[in-house]
Amino acid sequence: MTITTETPLVRIEGLHKFYGQHHVLRGIDLEVNRGEVSVVIGPSGSGKSTMLRCVNLLETISAGRISVDGQLIGYRDVKGRLHDLKTKEIAAQRREIGMVFQRFNLFPHKTALYNIMEAPVHVKGQSRDAARKRAMELLDRVGLADHAGHYPSQLSGGQQQRVAIARALAMDPELMLFDEPTSALDPELVGDVLNVMKDLARSGMTMIVVTHEIGFAREVGDRLTFMDGGVVVESGDPQEVLANPQHPRTKEFLSRVL
């Protein structure tokens, strides 16, 4: 199902991240082709969420480069010297990248419908009618059309997360980032969110998914990356990595989660 084009949509090269003296990411290389679902697993503290957050600059990049669709993220390269982008330019880059958070982060003062309409209307400048129509389509797609008027506090965790996915999709991103989207959910609510994500994967969306859901990786992942201690330990076809992990740390981790 991988549609191979000349260059990968996402290219992460030699990514390092420091928090003060703390070296969190120690040289990450990762490529994600257009239409690919790249699943990242690893123990907590392995840096997988930090890496994901670097892609849309919720974390600054200490060293290395990330490019999305050939565009360098966060910097302008002037004759080999990197210059910080302005806040406005960063905002423009983020519009192409949707993000789903572990804690949903819906806007509590807005209903599900207005959560989804917010960015299309106030960032993209779409008309309210067009944005409302699209938001209703997206709510229908995530199975919540009859919850449009509900506030986040009136929705279960699983419903909130599905609204959050719809909110990200409303900006028509070319890349979707999922930061442990099911980790804060009650077990019986995980399935609905995963189904929405599987549907999205099958529709050809490029996705980077940081998760503990091994089943999801096996079913829809095109590539599985195992991270530990701020480095990529092993990366490859999900079926192969899961069935036959090469590195002892991968083996140990999988033996504990499977």
């Binding site: 849309n56 919720l58 423009a92 983020r94 519009r95 819906l106 806007f107 003062h109 106030h122 960032v123």
Partner: peptide
């Protein structure tokens, strides 16, 4: 206001001023 609110708005590509007036301040 939870820090996640600002992050969610940033991830949607909202500018600083809009985040303040439309997301943070109302809450």
């Amino acid at each position: 206001v939870d820090r996640g609110q600002e992050e969610a708005a940033e991830a949607l590509g909202m500018g600083k001023t809009k985040i303040m007036w439309r997301i943070i301040l109302p809450q």
